[in-house]
């Protein structure tokens, strides 16, 4: 019977692998990897105001509260550039550290202190991204969702323009546009 279990497990593993494969460009690419790549892709479709971090030598992607994903982002963005500057990934623990970042990724585990985090980057040109459900409706700018085993995203255009960011229509046409819903 041990053999039977082994076969079942193997089949499960294969199925999972296949599903993940469908979700990404290449088989064997995980959802996390896709999201990390999307973070980089966003830099191509979003226009930051010129003054935002203009004196900085690097374009900073801050990752808050998702140390494992942070590592993956580091690996994915290594050696790449955005807005004509080298990309630099910072794993932070306090929202205040993200004040000078171009992109702030907020892990889903940080959902309970989301208002505080958003408060911290209020008025700054920071593209906030999170895979926490309903992130964009809560006042974030881009929220990841998984639809049909593909990683999709919501965009809160209102918040983006409030942050001084211009998101390309090319990207918007792929997104679900959402508005900020008054929190509970």
């Amino acid at each position: 019977m041990g053999l039977r279990r082994a076969v079942l497990v193997a089949a499960l593993v294969w199925t999972t692998a296949t599903r993940t494969g469908q979700a990404a460009e290449q088989p064997g690419v995980s959802e996390q990897e896709v999201k990390a790549a999307y973070l980089f892709h966003f830099t191509r479709f979003v226009e930051w105001p010129a003054r935002a971090g203009a004196d900085d030598a690097e374009f900073v992607v801050a990752v808050l509260g998702a140390s494992q994903f942070g590592e993956m982002v580091e690996r994915t963005l290594a050696g790449k550039t955005a807005q004509d500057r080298p990309l630099s990934v910072r794993r932070i623990s306090q929202p205040g550290e993200a004040a000078r970042a171009g992109i702030l990724f907020v892990g889903s585990l940080e959902a309970r202190r989301m208002p505080e985090i958003l408060e911290a980057v209020q008025g700054r040109s920071v593209l906030t991204v999170s895979d926490a459900p309903g992130f964009a409706e809560q006042g974030g700018i881009i929220g990841f969702r998984v639809v049909d085993k593909r990683v999709r995203f919501d965009v809160n255009v209102e918040q983006a323009s409030r942050a001084g960011l211009k998101i390309s229509s090319e990207m918007l046409k792929l997104a679900r546009i959402v508005r900020t819903r008054p929190g509970p």
Partner: peptide, 14 residues
């Protein structure tokens, strides 16, 4: 020009 983003974000429908 208009399918670059779809490729990037893996959106064949678009």
């Amino acid at each position: 020009l208009h399918t670059g983003s779809a490729l990037l974000f893996d959106d064949p429908a678009s």
